[in-house]
Design a binder for these strands. Structure first.
Lengths: 339, 339
DNA sequence: GACGTTAGCTGAACCGGATAAGCTCAGCCA
DNA sequence: TGGCTGAGCTTATCCGGTTCAGCTAACGTC
């Protein structure tokens, strides 16, 4: 099947290439009758404009890049990224933008990819994930002047546009809820310590514990994998004065923690309450179902994509606050057993 | 930061655009000294050729498309796709191909996407997932003559290239293992019935049960979600003569099944053995860890990508058999309790 | 009826590469 | 010395769109 070009449409309509271009792009310069005739012919012979030719002359790729910088191992297990991608994609395809995906090993490789994408004009902008506390990608992107939206923050995003959720508020709500249930010894299994949102949550955790007068609090850092989450839990529960509640930075670690607790003979929630961050269907899979801090990740992705398209279109690089994660209480939290 | 073009390199090197093109592409036509000088200058000013211009003249996009046709809901939870994508991506980026991703609602939309990608010359080929028993995408792709590799089969892939695993053999191995443990009443919670690999597994299940003289066997169809998997399990376990072992078509449903069993007061594996398909880290997260039929999904994706690049390069559209899923026994399977 | 004005269209340049064809000149041989 | 060869380069064309400048004809105006 040979692919028709604009010249084929022009020939069959008996007009010039220019007229066809005007007609298809809704530009003035052709009569309504001619436009309809051209559109009909284009549809009939199944014409769609070559993205390469269009990119070359219009200097826009109509594509957006997303580089994922996590090992394949953890990438797959967390539902977060797939949900994010599907939201991003929904927004992009609605505006006929393509999504180009690349998995990279580290930030240096990621910056190299941005540099190449920009040089090759392969994308018009990028979405940046997993913001670190001191993130080399930010100055690199600023220097390239590659339109970008950082999914993360607040803070640390330089002059770039960003989209963030108020993780501090969400974490505070979770701690207050646990304290209201009667918990005094609350621990936290955090994600990678150099991610910015980990620090934000850690700071918020320290602040709320101080405010509520909790002293027996511990934060253990992990890497979002089930293995590490389980190990961290085992360590916490083996301490002489073990916590009565644990907050996990993702759902996978929370599920691993639940298994470890059960394996150690503890009953959830009587002996141990569990709160998960990221309310995916996984949280409802296990028994008891997990109390979780959730939000619509797909919508988060869609908002990020929309924001990026705005930045590409020349809108100012603002910092948007998205929905704050909401606490959904389920069977994994209860007042601590008397002792 | 303005993006340098081939003309900038040519000007600084004091040669023509043509010479630069020959030098950068390793073509004969320039002396080694000139080539080195041009390469140095290109590196120095950070030149990378515009993908659009290259695509336009070389008539190749150096990009591969992947359309995912599942609701966002189930897409996110299963680790399968992310693992597949990371494998595909590793292979593609090693050969400097880009991956273009699109989430679609149904097969008609997917075919429309293929048609558009082909017309726009946005991709050089596509990977096709989730083959159905009577799949409209196959004839559509054949008609478009768009290079494609179908991830699925064997059979039902028409003239297209494909990559499949021997699910029938894997399922047979799992059943034989359960029978060797002493199980006689084995049930199966299958995936969507119109997926081809579901049918292959269902047929293999029927065949091996007949061969081994098992009569009390049941296959319940589901949709890969935890909710449905749990519901199916509840139905199976409520029957008068309940199964002593259940094989699930994915890990998410298996985990949901485990929860349901525990919730109903059954002990796994004493009262019920569980086998999961797709051995993701999730299977090791729960307690007891799940016996699973696993394979390297990332490598599967990489093989599919390599096969597709071959087809794009003009190699014959062969049907490749990948590694057969291997049974990894863990804590969720044991001989059935005497009764 | 001469003169703007404008809608509607054409022709050509341009985007940034790849590449075929042509040109130049050194080297070699008869 | 003239002719041939081939390495090493330049020039021109093409890919398939967008867009600008210009052309033509119809229309309105005084």
């Amino acid at each position: 099947m040979k692919r028709p070009t604009i010249a084929d449409v022009a020939r069959r309509a008996g007009v010039s290439k220019g007229a066809v271009s005007y007609a298809l792009n809704g530009q003035p310069g052709v009569s309504e009758a001619t436009r309809q005739r051209i559109l009909a012919i284009a549809t009939e012979i199944g014409f769609s404009p070559s993205s390469a030719a269009r990119a070359l002359s219009a200097a826009t790729a109509r594509a957006v890049g997303l580089a994922l910088c996590r090992p394949a191992r953890t990438l797959g297990v967390e539902p977060f990224f797939m949900a994010l991608i599907s939201g991003v994609e929904a927004e992009l395809s609605a505006r006929s933008y393509a999504l180009t995906l690349q998995v990279v090993a580290d930030h240096d490789a990621e910056i190299a990819v941005y540099r190449r994408w920009w040089g090759e004009r392969r994308v018009d902008g990028v979405l940046v994930c997993d913001l670190r506390t001191d993130d080399a990608r930010i100055p690199a992107l600023e220097q390239l002047r590659l339109p970008a939206v950082v999914i993360g923050g607040p803070g640390g995003t330089g002059e770039l546009a960003s989209l963030f959720s108020d993780d501090a508020a969400a974490l505070t709500e979770a701690v207050e809820y646990l304290v209201a249930l009667g918990h005094r010894r609350i621990a936290r299994v955090a994600g990678l310590p150099d991610l910015r949102h980990t620090k934000i949550r850690t700071d918020a955790f320290a602040a709320v514990c101080r405010r509520l007068g909790l002293s027996d609090t511990a934060t253990v850092f992990s890497d979002y994998t089930g293995e590490e989450g389980g190990r961290a839990t085992r360590r916490l529960l083996s301490a002489t004065s073990r916590p009565t509640a644990v907050i996990y930075d993702n759902d996978v670690m929370a599920i691993a923690g639940l298994s470890v607790a059960q394996e150690m003979g503890l009953t959830v929630p009587a002996d141990l309450s569990i709160v998960a961050w990221d309310d995916s269907p996984l949280c409802r899979l296990v028994h008891p179902p997990l109390t979780a801090l959730g939000r619509d990740i797909s919508a988060y992705g869609a908002h990020a994509a929309r924001h990026l398209l705005g930045v590409i279109a020349g809108e100012p690089a603002t910092r948007l606050r998205d929905e704050t994660p909401q606490l959904t209480p389920r069977g994994s939290t209860a007042p601590p057993r008397e002792r």
